[in-house]
Nucleic acid binder design. Structure first.
Length: 121
DNA sequence: AACTTGACGAGGG
DNA sequence: CCCCTCGCCAAGT
């Protein structure tokens, strides 16, 4: 798998574009939906090449409900600020309530208690 | 071809 | 809740 392959990246962006304003998804969740060849790390790699005008990249955060953009080209806190402007609430430790803001595409909603717990951890 | 480095995730202390 | 370790997979050197 190669992130330079357009189709490979597009499959990720297609999902990200579907996330409604004020909601978020996690890297791991997206990788599980896309399945083979994709891992949380891969999704992150694809996202750094995302066109910020075409993809709501800020709506993809880590599984702990925090933004993990600290060490790269993106200004620290920018992602969180963009999300807060959309209505996502973060606590004093920079964490948001995934049980409340996490979104899943049609057909991929968590089906049982176990998954619900997993997704909102 | 070996080694390092991530916009990651889960588990243990 | 913080910190560390390990597994993960693709890129850059």
């Amino acid at each position: 798998m190669n992130v330079n392959d357009k189709d490979y990246r597009e499959r990720v962006y297609e999902i990200v574009r579907q996330i409604p304003v004020g909601n978020v998804m996690t890297y791991g969740q997206i990788s599980m939906i896309l399945g083979e060849g994709y891992t949380a790390r891969t999704i992150g790699y694809v996202m750094h090449g995302a066109d910020s005008d075409k993809v709501p990249w800020q709506r993809v955060i880590n599984s702990q409900g925090k933004c993990s953009t600290g060490r790269l080209t993106i200004p620290v806190n920018l992602q969180q600020e963009l999300l807060e402007a959309e209505g996502v609430v973060f606590n004093d430790k920079g964490k948001c309530d995934l049980g409340k803001f996490l979104w899943s595409p049609a057909g991929f909603e968590p089906e049982d208690e176990a998954q619900t717990t997993l997704f909102s951890r």
